[in-house]
Amino acid sequence: MVGITAGGQATADAIRREAADLFSTHGYEATSLRQVAAKCGITVGSLYNHISSKEDLLLQIMGGTMDELTAQVAAAVESVEDPLERLVAFLSNHISFHAEQAQRVFIGNSELRSLPADLRAEITAKRRAYRRQVEELILEAAKAGQTEVVNARLHAYNIIAIGTDVATWYRPGGEFSLERIVKDYTEIILRSLGASAKAASH
């Protein structure tokens, strides 16, 4: 990628946004760079000022999603000291992000196979680091006597799966508000750990 100016960044953002819309609607394999360029109102040649290939574009979308999610939950947890409240802050942001960024989450789950092995490894490494962050928060709360851990790894997988699942069915204006979904899922997860959201609020 070359030339990071305000205009260039805006174009790069537009490329990723329009590509994500096409990938989620038609699938990665069925989408051409020509279609992406047309939706952005630029030439195919101009795309190469921002990407090196179609695979690179998919990597940017998927990697950017993981980076944004990781940064968001890290910022939420950083300002909290109590271990259980830290876990609650993580859960709130984890669930909200997956609901609000459902399109990008869908691409991440459905198109990972479309990346070559070396690029796929980059994404799986980011996901592994994210999962470890969940495990650490669970174990911190357990060490403080606030949760009962059966298997930290499996608890973490369950939490991640809940976020992924919410992304498949949540719709703004649906039966449940996002606030209600976050509240109830947080309570469900904490109860599975022998805790409660009420305990975190005291």
Score class of each variant (00 low, 15 high):
192 S>C: 13
188 I>F: 15
81 E>P: 00
170 Y>T: 04
197 A>N: 13
44 V>D: 12
70 T>D: 07
70 T>L: 07
179 E>T: 08
25 T>K: 11
134 V>A: 11
55 E>L: 02
16 R>V: 11
170 Y>I: 07
108 G>S: 07
54 K>S: 06
200 A>N: 05
42 I>C: 08
30 A>T: 06
111 E>P: 01
149 V>T: 10
117 A>R: 12
159 I>E: 09
106 F>Y: 04
92 S>M: 02
25 T>W: 03
40 C>D: 06
16 R>N: 07
137 L>H: 00
184 D>H: 15
54 K>N: 05
103 Q>M: 13
82 D>H: 07
135 E>H: 05
61 I>C: 03
21 D>C: 12
29 E>D: 11
159 I>Y: 10
201 S>Q: 15
123 I>A: 03
91 L>F: 08
8 G>K: 02
20 A>K: 02
41 G>E: 05
160 I>V: 13
12 A>N: 10
89 A>S: 15
194 G>M: 04
135 E>P: 00
39 K>N: 13
70 T>Q: 06
31 T>V: 09
190 L>M: 10
156 A>I: 00
76 A>T: 04
8 G>N: 13
71 A>I: 02
158 N>S: 13
88 V>D: 08
116 P>F: 06
66 M>E: 13
39 K>E: 14
62 M>E: 12
144 A>C: 03
27 G>N: 14
105 V>W: 02
157 Y>Q: 13
55 E>H: 09
34 R>V: 00
166 V>P: 01
99 A>N: 11
161 A>F: 10
23 F>D: 02
61 I>D: 04
28 Y>L: 02
172 P>E: 12
114 S>D: 01
87 L>T: 02
11 T>N: 06
8 G>A: 14
191 R>G: 05
122 E>Q: 12
46 S>C: 05
181 I>H: 03
56 D>S: 09
127 R>Y: 00
92 S>C: 08
86 R>T: 03
194 G>Y: 06
115 L>E: 07
17 R>P: 00
64 G>M: 11
177 S>V: 13
160 I>K: 05
144 A>Q: 03
33 L>W: 09
22 L>C: 03
14 A>F: 01
11 T>S: 08
181 I>V: 15
150 V>M: 09
168 T>P: 01
169 W>M: 09
68 E>A: 15
45 G>P: 02
188 I>K: 10
94 H>R: 12
178 L>V: 00
7 G>A: 14
149 V>F: 07
124 T>L: 07
56 D>K: 09
167 A>F: 02
46 S>A: 14
85 E>A: 15
46 S>K: 07
129 A>Q: 09
24 S>T: 14
61 I>A: 11
59 L>M: 12
90 F>G: 04
134 V>T: 13
155 H>C: 01
16 R>D: 03
34 R>T: 08
77 V>K: 09
63 G>W: 03
32 S>E: 09
140 E>G: 02
147 T>L: 08
50 H>G: 01
113 R>T: 12
175 E>V: 15
164 T>G: 02
102 A>G: 10
3 G>K: 15
111 E>I: 05
105 V>E: 14
43 T>W: 05
5 T>W: 15
90 F>V: 03
66 M>T: 05
149 V>Q: 03
85 E>I: 09
13 D>T: 12
179 E>F: 04
125 A>C: 05
164 T>P: 00
25 T>Q: 13
21 D>V: 14
42 I>Y: 05
143 K>E: 10
168 T>K: 08
178 L>W: 10
87 L>S: 11
